[in-house]
């Protein structure tokens, strides 16, 4: 038992929060700057390309919608990896990473849902269609919210992290099943009426701004994520300091 705990301690040293904070302090301005540049380029490209002759100007929603949907999924993957880190390596930074990622993921999922709905209005003539992809994203949104609710309901952060990690992994295993079942359900009830955006039908003209925007969104996610992690670490440090203060006062009281 002493050996692995020693190994864990060494591992913690390699990426301990202090070092992580120092790294964040150096990295985040660059990351944020790069994100801004990419957004500038991506948005410029997005608004200068010719609109689709069928969809008109609304096609530009795609440049926000698709990256947000992609991030909704990537964020869950990041959380699942963090959950593994929590359960297998018991790394405290992994706890923080999973907890910080959940609200960000929920936001991107919400953005994907709202833009999907805005896009759907002119396309389908209604704000919401129970289309397979939208529905899966909606279920994902519910899962994010459940995760946040669970995290908020527990007061001990270490235990909350471990238990949420189990939930995240169960959800991660389930996501492909949910996706598959929703697609099954969708083909059963309505034939595919959605304009396919993936695959070879997409032209290079749309692809370039889309790619730039996707990279910009991914960088935005990482910027937000490391900043949220930094905040969470600082929040825990404050909690520790407060506890120290409370205990110190208690001991002085005992002495007097």
């Amino acid at each position: 038992m002493s050996e692995p705990s020693l190994a864990i301690r060494k591992f913690s040293d390699l990426a301990n929060p202090t070092r992580f904070l120092a790294l964040v302090a150096i990295v985040w301005p660059w990351l944020a700057g790069l994100t801004l540049c990419l957004f500038a380029v991506g948005l410029y490209l997005a608004f200068t390309t010719v609109g689709d002759y069928q969809q008109g100007e609304t096609v530009r929603i795609m440049y926000v919608h698709v990256p947000a949907a992609w991030l909704a999924m990537m964020c869950y993957t990041v959380m699942a990896l963090s959950a593994l880190g929590t359960l297998v390596w018991r790394h405290p930074l992994a706890d923080v990473s999973a907890k910080a990622a959940a609200p960000i993921g929920a936001c991107f999922t919400l953005v994907a849902l709202i833009t999907g709905s805005l896009w759907g209005k002119p396309m389908w003539g209604t704000w919401w269609v129970w289309d397979a992809r939208l529905t899966s994203v909606f279920v994902l949104f519910l899962m994010y919210l459940g995760m946040i609710a669970l995290n908020r309901a527990m007061d001990d952060p270490t235990r909350a992290a471990k238990v949420s990690a189990v939930l995240i992994l169960v959800g991660f295993v389930n996501i492909p099943i949910i996706k598959f079942s929703v697609e099954w359900w969708n083909t059963l009830h309505q034939p595919a009426s959605v304009i396919r955006l993936d695959g070879p039908t997409i032209s290079a003209e749309f692809l370039r701004p889309l790619l730039v925007m996707a990279i910009a969104f991914t960088l935005l996610f990482f910027t937000l994520h490391i900043l949220a992690m930094r905040n969470e670490i600082l929040r825990r440090r404050i909690a520790v300091l407060r506890r120290h203060a409370a205990r110190a006062a208690g001991r002085e009281g005992d002495a007097a």
Binding site: N16, P17, P92, H244, R247
Partner: peptide, 10 residues
């Protein structure tokens, strides 16, 4: 009793 606040990694 109470041995102190744990030396946390934070």
């Amino acid at each position: 009793g109470f041995a102190g606040v744990a030396e946390t990694v934070w």
